[in-house]
């Protein structure tokens, strides 16, 4: 069993169980909204906010909510915060609100949030649950922003709305391009992770060998 602390939660949420690249959750907004980097950030931050708040409440109420009605209770809590996000966005950021459109209310049924509530927040203390919400949300935001920036750069030659060059490959703004980009990024992410893991293993092994040599040396001196 892994020990739970803030550091493992952060690594888990951002890398080892990154919701988009490792768990492949919430693919619907991932595929549909990553046409622009700014959409990715907006959606990611909206989800992060809902995640933190819902994890907080679910964790607070984890001893009150009976096991039989936990899913309806979670959905109620999540739906409340999604509505809050919608109201706030409509009031203060109307352009982002209309860009996210239908996908904003759909956060309610986003499996990332339900999964974190079910598998983490309902079992852990408040502080850890909030940290988990924050880092999972940031992992999602990171994934969406990177994909959005890649697709925006190739499909319109701009990044965050700043035009860099006048050359576009419309393929990447189509839905086929969304699937393609998603696959490429999953592959890239897994590759980088495996390389890092391999390096770590080599390092660990070298340390182990060193330790063994030392203990062997100690053993021989003692025998003498």
């Amino acid at each position: 069993m892994k020990k739970t602390n803030i550091k493992t939660i952060a690594v888990d949420g951002l890398i080892t169980s990154n919701p988009t690249f490792k768990l492949v959750l919430g693919t619907c907004p991932t595929l549909a909204l990553t046409t622009l980097a700014i959409n990715g950030i907006g959606m990611g931050l909206a989800v992060t906010f809902v995640l933190i708040c819902s994890n907080l409440l679910v964790s607070l109420l984890r001893k009150v909510i009976p096991n039989q009605v936990r899913i309806p209770a979670f959905v109620l809590i999540i739906a409340t915060f999604v509505t809050v996000v919608r109201l706030v966005l409509d009031k203060f950021m109307p352009s982002l609100y209309s860009a996210l459109g239908l996908y904003l209310p759909l956060i309610v049924v986003n499996c990332i949030i339900l999964a974190r509530a079910e598998s983490f927040a309902s079992k852990n203390c408040v502080l850890y649950s909030m940290a988990d919400g924050l880092f999972t949300g940031l992992g999602f935001t990171f994934a969406l922003t990177v994909m959005g920036a890649f697709r925006e750069l190739l499909s319109s030659g701009a990044i965050f709305g700043v035009k860099l060059w006048d050359f576009e490959i419309a393929f990447f703004s189509s839905s086929a391009g969304a699937f393609f980009t998603f696959a490429i990024f999953i592959a890239l992410f897994s590759y980088i992770e495996s390389v890092v893991k391999k390096q770590k293993k080599i390092k660990d092994y070298a340390e182990l060998v060193k330790l063994k040599e030392q203990s062997a040396f100690v053993g021989t001196t003692e025998a003498k």
Partner: peptide, 21 residues
């Protein structure tokens, strides 16, 4: 429990709706 959550959430949203409308 469900009713309590619904009532609290509903109250919160009613207030926010007035403020943010």
């Amino acid at each position: 429990v469900l009713l309590a959550i619904a009532v609290v959430a509903g109250g919160l949203l009613a207030v926010l709706n007035n403020v943010l409308a």
